[in-house]
């Protein structure tokens, strides 16, 4: 397949330029990258915070979506959001049913960045406790209900 070639190109593009608020934390192989994102406007929920995203690519990337979660690392926390569970799992249709192979690491970061930017609710998704206790790490195993399009 073409996963490695494609990721190699993405990486060289990313090294050339990235949108403000997005930076690369580590990308030493073609299976796991870490990206740092921050919200640039004055949203009090996320002011002066940097969050870390973990990207896991399968050999079928980009036909298959990458697994993207927030991780606690280097003092980075999991951002508060009604679509982000406290274990870092993100409920975003783009990463599941609505994935398209023309998306890329940069566009995913931008989508998540804007998902934070536009949020005003200081809360976790309903059922966060049970979800986190159930130990799901992979967003792929969950059938999210994308019921709330306002956030």
């Amino acid at each position: 397949m073409f996963a490695q070639k494609r990721l190699g190109k993405e990486l060289s593009n990313i090294h050339k330029s990235l949108p403000p608020g997005i930076s690369i934390a580590s990308a030493s192989d073609f299976s796991n990258w870490k990206m740092d994102i921050q919200v640039l406007d004055t949203n009090p929920l996320y002011a002066d915070q940097i969050y870390r995203l973990n990207f896991k690519f399968s050999g079928s990337y980009p036909i298959e979506a990458p697994e993207v979660t927030f991780i606690k690392e280097d003092g980075r926390d999991i951002p508060m959001h009604p679509h982000i569970y406290s274990n870092g799992v993100i409920c975003l249709d783009l990463l599941g049913t609505n994935w398209s192979p023309v998306q890329n690491v940069e566009s995913v970061c931008m989508s998540i960045q804007s998902m934070l930017t536009s949020n005003t609710k200081n809360e976790r998704p309903p059922g966060d406790d049970t979800f986190v206790r159930s130990g799901y790490r992979s967003p792929r195993n969950i059938n999210f209900v994308y019921d709330d399009n306002t956030v």
């Binding site: 073409f2 070639k5 494609r6 190109k9 993405e10 980009p62 036909i63 192979p101 023309v102």
Partner: peptide, 12 residues
């Protein structure tokens, strides 16, 4: 390679 000759999924 110009962008218009590249496949936007495989980047080849």
């Amino acid at each position: 390679v110009p962008d218009y000759l590249m496949d936007s999924i495989s980047f080849s």
